[in-house]
């Protein structure tokens, strides 16, 4: 395996959890809900995936558990912010803190244990083609799920009636409600989808990326995913580009260092966030484009008047 393939594979592994978590949060935010608890749901997914995989010995059941735990955590958020119309920012932040605490409690007995790794795809002949073989036919299964998710979400949001409805709720929940659309039900489903994605992203961390459980192992990746959604101005394809750009920057800087090229690594660590700020400044220049893509109701609770 050549160096180029090796680097590209590492980038794909680094980008996949960011991409999955961000694509889930994109759907949530398109419905007008801002869930800052991505980090918390992700870390719950990571611990759930690891614990169940090591108890059952089957990493695939671990993946399902990761998704289930992400959904469960998100339901707590959904109940508080959608049913009880609690403040979304405060609830999301506390969801992150809760997730970090609860996950370290759940995983205490499992720290330092050898994990079950989800194997890479290995097709005869195809996986052995130089360069494209390992990249297209030889990755871990969650990589393929992440690509399918981007295509699926893109198709759903912009090519289906339900997607149109979801976006309309995000843009004006009062009008949608007046038209008889069940705003709260849509939002519940969107938040649960976001939770499932964050959980899966966490499962990728503890079952593929580094098959082990350590406290706080998401290490801020949930926040990068949140930044990515804004960076992508709520467009799925741009989330894909952004996640791979962030992955490439973080892996590229490691390689640059190993080659002895003097780059200030502290600066590169901050780069994803700097890029988000720059993009925010740029998109705020174009008011029209901003208005088209930003869900107007983002973060505002909706209480239907009956």
């Amino acid at each position: 395996m050549g160096m180029t393939e090796a680097i590209l594979l590492t980038i794909a592994t680094a980008a996949t959890p960011l991409l999955i978590a961000a694509i889930g949060e994109l759907v949530v935010e398109r419905s007008g809900v801002l869930n800052l608890g991505v980090e918390g749901m992700m870390v719950m997914g990571a611990v759930g995936g690891f614990v169940v995989a090591s108890l059952t010995g089957n990493p695939w059941i671990g993946v399902l558990a990761a998704i289930a735990l992400g959904v469960l955590t998100s339901l707590l958020f959904a109940f508080l912010t959608i049913s009880l119309a609690a403040n979304q920012v405060a609830t999301g932040l506390s969801l992150t803190i809760l997730g970090l605490g609860a996950s370290s409690l759940m995983g205490e007995k499992f720290v330092g244990q050898a994990g079950k790794k989800l194997g890479n795809l290995d097709l005869p002949v195809l996986s052995d083609i130089p360069l494209i073989g390992p990249l297209i036919f030889g990755q871990d299964p969650i990589f393929y799920i992440s690509i399918a998710l981007v295509i699926g979400v893109s198709w759903f949001l912009f090519r289906t009636r339900a997607g149109l409805t979801l976006r309309s709720i995000g843009n004006n929940h009062h009008s949608a409600h007046a038209l008889g659309i069940p705003v709260l039900r849509y939002r519940y489903l969107a938040v649960m989808f976001g939770g499932a994605c964050a959980g899966l992203a966490g499962g990728h961390l503890s079952l593929v990326y580094t098959p082990q459980w350590v406290e706080n192992m998401t290490a801020g990746r949930g926040w990068i995913a949140l930044a990515l959604v804004v960076f992508a101005s709520w467009r799925p394809a741009r989330v894909l580009a952004g996640a791979y750009l962030f992955g490439a920057v973080s892996i590229g800087q490691l390689h640059a260092q190993a080659l002895g090229i003097a780059v200030p690594s502290q600066l590169l660590t901050a780069l994803p966030f700097l890029a988000t700020i720059v993009v925010l400044v740029l998109i705020s220049q174009n008011v029209r484009a901003t208005l088209i893509n930003t869900p107007a109701m983002l973060g505002r609770p909706f209480v239907p008047d009956r």
Binding site: A6, Q257, A258, L259, S265
Partner: peptide
């Protein structure tokens, strides 16, 4: 000796990435 700075004491993912980068470069 090739050195990679990760600017953290504890981030399993980042440490793994650094390890992969170093191995890919032939250590």
């Amino acid at each position: 000796l090739k050195v990679v700075w990760v600017n953290t004491w504890f981030d399993a993912g980042k440490e793994a990435d650094a390890a992969k980068a170093l191995i890919d470069q032939g250590v």
